[in-house]
Design a binder for these strands. Structure first.
Lengths: 355, 355
DNA sequence: ATGAAAGCGCTAACAA
DNA sequence: TTGTTAGCGCTTTCAT
């Protein structure tokens, strides 16, 4: 036998009115207290707070937003939290937003521009105070359109208009670091597996290209992607080459790992027969059995900076853009090594030697 | 010389009133159209839609929420998106919420109950339609309190009250799978590195304990944690043991990886001298150089199921709890092997042999 | 099928 | 320092 509930409590949550009544003050006074206004007598403040506590009152964010035209909320568009890159940028965003008292509305775009736009649309309905688009694939012109409706910051995008702030890691510098490092180790046949349609792929591969030419080397780029699969596919092509590279610069760590995996199956050992460099310095890359040479990007800092910059625009009504570019650093680890000086003879594809 | 902007546009966004005026209908009719009500003549509908498009009108979610007492938003509390476990559960949540037309308000608790409570408090101010708490460390009694204010679903928690729905993976079964598997491979000295204060640590270690005893073996649990560090510390103790285990069952993949790393530095090779099993089947565990035997939990499915169950409670006003328990599966890979039958003699700690 | 009007719970002048 | 009073932009009866 199930007991029929006897409750006869007021169904909906208490309002400011209820608190005011119980405390014997006006609604406006309650509002002042809850907004932390200084010019309220301690006595009344106490009364209000007590009444609120007694009723378990909690301000209604929607009502507040409607009346005040601000909701202390930021919309964050990410492609995919599965990916360590986004997760870590987000971590920085969360920390900084929290310290400024902002809430986060989050949406994922899944690298599909239409989905991204739907997400942003949803942010706009919410009338968020600002939006951050991480590695958005939305057209520049549409981005500008968005920025005219809400304070906007993008990261991973190189757009330069007054209405959009940006935070980026210097992809160009990162690629240069890799090429020069490999060159100094004696490598000359350095191949690049790019990021496919990924946003930062273009700047990285272009920088790779330039750095190679500046060193008098022949660039060689093959198509990759943003994840392991892209690396594995690229590895497939590499295995078929008659004259394989001595070093590979992968778009990111995941691609590098995918490539290594496949190349090792093909009998190539790292770093003995080939060197490889990733990008991102994800946690996995540092694990001992992997120990991948890579490039660090200050992702959490990017996230924090993004929020700080955006909130600055919101607060100051700044009309000009701020652009931050953070510097990456090379993290040399175990998958790269100096190329041994050897006689001109063994020029063909390297024989596979069992160690 | 910076040109002074000449714009004289209406500053704030257009409202329903504006649309109504332009379309020559009442505000209520516009509302009907935007809520997709069927009983509107096609002609008027068109007019409204056109007017809205012309003005670039977008409904105000706060106003809507205030008037309708619902906002099609779910609050999601996660500990830390950095962690693949949470990221993947979230992925499932995001997909399912999207397909039901719900937005997500997200907050992280960082494994600090006070922060979790602040996050939930914020959800309540928003008057979200429901909340999902992933691996919350909030007291059961407080969870009950929350569930009285908003439809609530928890995952990772075994609480059983009518007001809270739950979604869990069967941690007990997972631990049994591991112990039995190792037993079948001939292992008898199976040590468990637990998850420390982590929520699912208790059920897993308890199940390990029972499974061991059921097999007539002596359980041995040492303290770990939820990340690499915990594993490394535990490995330190293992290296000091005079009679080392032949197999280790780690709380999760990260702990396993941390432990392996440290143990390998101590000269132990896997799986030759020791077997090790993780938990979670994170992407890293599948990478070739790691190739960790582990237990898979259907994380995305957990996320999807959580949202589906919660929305069901919201829609149906269900007053009784629904509990889902999903089954884990063992993923045998390269870090475990059958123990070789050997003479009773070599019982001491294994000599370290260079391969 | 459509319109009129009363809120939803709060903030923001303005008065007092 | 505190109270009064319009709204904020929408939904929701209730008429028609």
């Amino acid at each position: 036998m199930v007991a029929r509930p006897k409750k006869r409590v007021k169904r909906s949550a208490p309002t400011m009115e209820d608190v005011a009544k119980l405390a014997g003050v006006s609604r406006a006074l309650v509002s002042l207290v809850f907004r932390g206004e200084p010019h309220v007598s301690t006595e009344r403040r106490e009364r209000v707070l007590n009444a609120a506590a007694e009723l378990n009152y909690r301000p209604n964010a929607a009502a507040r937003a409607l009346a005040s035209h601000t909701n202390k909320t930021l919309g964050i568009m990410l492609q995919d939290l599965h990916d360590a890159y986004f997760a870590e940028v987000f971590e920085g965003i969360a920390v900084e937003a929290d310290s400024h008292g902002y809430r986060l509305l989050i949406g994922t775009g899944g690298r599909r521009p239409e989905d991204e736009e739907r997400t942003v649309e949803s942010f706009l309905e919410y009338r968020v105070d600002g939006v951050i688009l991480v590695s958005s694939m939305i057209d520049d012109s549409k981005l500008v359109g968005i920025s005219q409706q809400v304070p906007t910051l993008v990261t991973g995008n190189y757009i330069r208009v007054p209405s959009i702030d940006t935070v980026n890691a210097d992809n160009q510098r990162g690629a240069e670091l890799v090429v020069n490092y490999l060159f100094e180790l004696g490598h000359r046949r350095i191949l690049h597996i790019d990021g496919g349609v990924e946003l930062s792929s273009r700047p990285r591969s272009a920088a790779y290209w330039h750095a190679m030419e500046a060193l008098g080397l022949t660039p060689h780029v093959i198509m990759g992607g943003y994840a392991e699969k892209g690396g594995a596919d690229a590895a497939e092509s590499i295995l078929k080459m008659r004259r394989r590279p001595t070093a590979v610069f992968a778009f990111n760590d995941r691609v590098a790992l995918g490539a290594m995996d496949r190349l090792e199956q093909g009998g190539i050992t790292f770093p003995n027969e080939m060197s490889i460099v990733g990008y991102d310095n994800t946690l996995v890359s540092s694990l001992h059995p992997i120990n991948l040479t890579t490039v660090n990007q200050p992702r959490e800092e990017m996230g924090r900076l993004a929020v700080g910059t955006l909130i600055d625009r919101i607060d100051s009504h700044r009309q000009s853009a701020v652009h931050h570019t953070l510097q990456p650093t090379l993290i040399p680890r175990g998958t790269t090594r100096r190329i041994p000086v050897r006689s001109k003879t063994k020029q063909g594809s390297p024989r596979i030697t069992t160690v």
